[in-house]
Write a protein that binds this DNA or RNA. Structure first.
Length: 557
RNA sequence: UGGGGUAUGGGGUAAUUGGCAGCCCGACGGAUUCUGGCUCCGUUAGUCUAGGUUCGAGUCCUAGUACCCCAGCCA
C-alpha cells in the first residue's frame, strides 16, 4: 500500500470542524458544465469532492453548471451521471444552476437597487478595450453611473426580450482600477437567445459563471466549494458577490487545488472533441481516449482510477502525473481480480510426436484443471483440453537461442503450463526460412506440470483442435508516441488512424469466453486484455505501456 | 507590463510547523516463482539561486530566478 499523498484540503476541513467554522457541517459539490464527457481530470475532482464529503459525513451533490445555453446538452448530463456512478460514487441529487435562475434574477435586481450593478449599452469589443490590461488602467463605462430606476427598467426590458443579443449586459459596479482584472466591473448577465436544454425559451438573459456559482453554492448549503487552481483569481469576486447578498445561511468558501494532468495525453475538451470530430478516434469511448468511458472501455477498473486519484491527493502545485503511475494502480487491481486464460498472438504449430492415439487412431484428448487466478483460490479452476497438436507463441521458440533466452529451443526442455514437460526435437521452416512447425516429445511422468527436473520456462499453449480464433487490436501508439518524461500534450496529435493495428489469426482456449463477463482477462504472460465492444472476438491490450515483449527484448539486449 | 500562485531525486509527493529529508512511480541489481507476471529484498538520486538569522533552516528573513493563472458577454 502506498502512503497517502499530502492532502491540504483534508487538513483544512478537519480544522474547520475543530473550530466549528460551519457548525461542523461539511457539504461539497461537483459542478461540471454539461458540454462534454468526463475525463480522467474530472475523476480527481470527483474523488476530492465526493471523497471529502464522505470522509466527514457530509453531502456532495452533482450540480450541472448550465448557464450557457449555446454549448450545453442533456445528452451530456446523462453521461456525466452514468460516469460518476461507474466510478463508484452516489449522487444524492442531480441539481442544476438553472434551478436558481429566478433567485439569481431577484438578487440581481437587489444589487441594482443598492447601486452595485448597472446596465451597460456598449458592445463586447468596447467593454473589453475599456477593461484595460495588466498594469494598464481601466476606463469607466459612460453608463456606469446611471440611476437605479433606469437600470432596473433596462434590466427588466433585457429580460423581457426587448433588446438584441449582445446589445446590453448587466455589470457589477466594483472597481475599474482593480489590480485583479476579474473585479473590473464583471459581467453578470448577457442577452442570448439560445435554446436552453432545461429552461427552454423562458429566458433570453443568462447569468455568467461568476454570478451563478457562489450563489448556487450558498443556496444549496455548500460549505466547501472546491475547485481547480485557475479559479483562484475568481475567488475575490466569489466572495464579493456573496458579501453583498442576503444569503439564507452560511457563506460557502472556495478553495482551489491543482488539476490532474497526465503525461502522453490531453484533457482539453476542445482537443478531445476534435479527435472525435475528425475521426482520429472512433468516439468518446474509444479506448485510446482519456475519457472515463474510454478508460472503462480500455479495461481500467474504476477502483484503480479511484485509488490513483486518492494517492495523488490535493496540492497547489501544477504537475503532470506519469501515465505509468496510473497504470501501476491498474495493474495492481487487475492482478488481483483478472481471470487468467491462455492465448497466443502469433501462433506456431507444435506437434507432440510421442502423443498417444486412441483405438480409432485419433489423438487422445486430456483435460487439465488450471487455476483461474493463482492469487485467488476463490476464482476456482477451469478444465483445459490438451492434445497432440498445440499452438504456442512464436516468440516462445528460438531456433538459435540468444543468451538468456530460457524458452523452447532444439534439445531444450520447458513446461507447458499445467500440462507436461516438453523437449523440442526439431522444427520446420518454409522456403523463406519462416518457422512453420515445431516438434517435441512430452514426458508422461510430468503430468500436471510437476516434474523431478527444474525447467527454466513455463509456456502457455492452446490445443489446436479446440482453439477459438480471436483478434487483438493494439492501441499502444497513443502512449508511446512521446518519449517518457517529455513534457508534452501533443501525443494525441501524433496519432493517426493507422496506429490501430489489428492482429488476426490469434488463438485462444475456448474458456476465454467464460471470462468475458469480467471484461478484462490476463492472457498468460501476454498481459491484460479487454474485450472490445464491437465484437466478442476482438480484444485490445489494456495496460498499454507495458508491452511485455518489448520488455523481454530489452532484457535480452 | 500589474496582480495572484507554485518551486523537495528522472516523475510525483511527505516532513510532528526550527530538530535524523520519508513514501509512491520509474530505472537498476538480487531472491522467490508452474506466467520473464505477481511478491519480497536492496541500490540509485533531492530541498530553485545568492546572502542572512540560529547550536541547528526544506521550514524564518532579504534579494533574485523559473514556471502556472488572470485583460470571454466561456466555465
Amino acid at each position: 500500500m502506498t502512503t497517502p499523498a499530502g492532502d491540504f484540503i483534508r487538513d483544512l476541513v478537519r480544522r474547520d470542524n475543530e473550530r466549528q467554522t460551519f457548525g461542523g457541517r461539511v457539504q461539497t459539490r461537483f459542478p461540471p458544465e454539461p458540454n462534454g464527457y468526463l475525463h480522467i481530470g474530472h475523476a480527481k475532482a470527483i474523488t476530492v469532492d465526493f471523497g471529502i464529503a464522505e470522509e466527514f459525513g457530509g453531502v456532495c451533490n452533482l450540480r450541472l453548471d448550465d448557464t450557457n445555453p449555446d454549448t450545453e446538452e442533456s445528452e451530456f448530463v446523462d453521461s456525466i451521471v452514468a460516469d460518476i456512478e461507474w466510478l463508484g460514487f452516489r449522487t444524492p441529487a442531480v441539481l442544476h444552476a438553472s434551478d436558481y435562475f429566478d433567485q439569481l434574477y431577484e438578487w440581481a435586481e437587489y444589487l441594482i437597487g443598492r447601486g452595485l450593478a448597472y446596465v451597460d449599452d456598449q458592445d463586447s469589443e468596447t467593454i473589453s478595450a475599456q477593461r484595460g490590461g495588466y498594469g494598464r488602467p481601466g476606463v469607466e463605462s459612460p453608463f456606469r453611473d446611471r440611476g437605479a430606476e433606469e437600470n432596473l427598467d433596462l434590466f427588466r426590458r433585457m429580460r423581457a426580450g426587448e433588446f438584441a443579443d449582445g446589445s446590453r449586459v448587466l455589470r457589477a459596479r466594483i472597481d475599474m482600477q482593480h489590480d485583479n482584472m476579474q473585479l473590473r466591473d464583471p459581467i453578470m448577465y448577457r442577452i442570448r437567445r439560445g435554446h436552453h436544454f432545461r429552461t427552454g425559451d423562458k429566458w433570453c438573459i443568462y447569468p455568467t459563471y461568476d454570478w451563478a456559482h457562489g450563489q448556487s453554492d450558498a443556496i444549496e448549503g455548500v460549505t466547501h466549494s472546491l475547485c481547480t487552481l485557475e479559479f483562484e483569481g475568481n475567488r475575490p469576486l466569489y466572495d464579493w458577490y456573496l458579501g453583498q447578498l442576503p444569503l439564507p445561511g452560511d457563506r460557502p468558501r472556495q478553495t482551489e487545488f491543482a488539476r490532474l494532468e497526465l503525461t502522453h495525453t490531453v484533457t482539453s475538451k476542445r482537443r478531445l472533441a476534435k479527435l472525435v470530430a475528425d475521426g482520429t478516434v472512433d468516439g468518446w469511448d474509444d479506448p485510446r481516449m482519456p475519457t472515463l468511458r474510454g478508460l472503462r472501455h480500455r479495461g481500467y477498473p474504476a477502483k484503480a482510477i479511484r485509488a490513483f486519484c486518492t494517492d495523488v491527493g490535493t496540492t497547489r502545485t501544477n504537475s503532470r502525473q506519469s501515465i505509468e503511475a496510473l497504470e501501476s494502480f491498474v495493474r495492481r487491481e487487475l492482478n488481483a481480480t483478472a481471470q487468467r486464460r491462455m492465448a497466443v498472438l502469433h501462433p506456431v504449430r507444435l506437434v507432440v510426436t510421442n502423443w498417444p492415439v486412441d483405438a480409432v487412431g485419433d489423438p487422445v484428448v486430456e483435460y487439465f484443471e488450471i487455476a483461474n487466478n493463482p492469487e485467488n483460490a476463490e476464482d476456482g479452476v477451469r478444465s483445459v483440453a490438451f492434445s497432440g497438436e498445440l499452438f504456442i507463441e512464436a516468440e516462445d521458440f528460438a531456433a538459435d537461442p540468444p543468451p538468456k533466452f530460457f524458452r523452447l529451443a532444439p534439445g531444450r526442455e520447458v513446461r507447458l503450463r499445467g500440462a507436461y514437460y516438453l523437449t523440442c526435437t526439431d522444427f520446420d521452416t518454409d522456403a523463406d526460412g519462416n518457422l512453420v512447425e515445431v516438434r517435441a516429445t512430452y514426458d508422461p511422468e510430468t503430468r500436471g506440470g510437476q516434474g523431478p527436473r527444474k525447467v527454466k520456462a513455463t509456456l502457455h499453449w492452446v490445443s489446436a483442435a479446440h482453439a477459438i480464433d480471436i483478434e487483438v487490436a493494439l492501441y499502444d501508439r497513443l502512449f508511446s508516441a512521446a518519449a517518457p518524461g517529455e513534457r508534452t500534450g501533443e501525443a494525441l496529435d501524433d496519432l493517426n488512424p493507422n496506429s490501430r493495428e489489428v492482429l488476426t489469426g490469434c488463438k485462444a482456449e475456448p474458456a476465454l469466453t467464460d471470462a468475458l463477463a469480467g471484461e478484462v482477462v490476463q492472457f498468460e504472460r501476454l498481459g491484460y486484455f479487454a474485450r472490445d465492444s464491437s465484437s466478442p472476438r476482438l480484444f485490445h491490450r489494456t495496460v498499454g505501456l507495458r508491452d511485455e515483449w518489448a520488455a523481454i527484448q530489452r532484457r535480452q539486449g
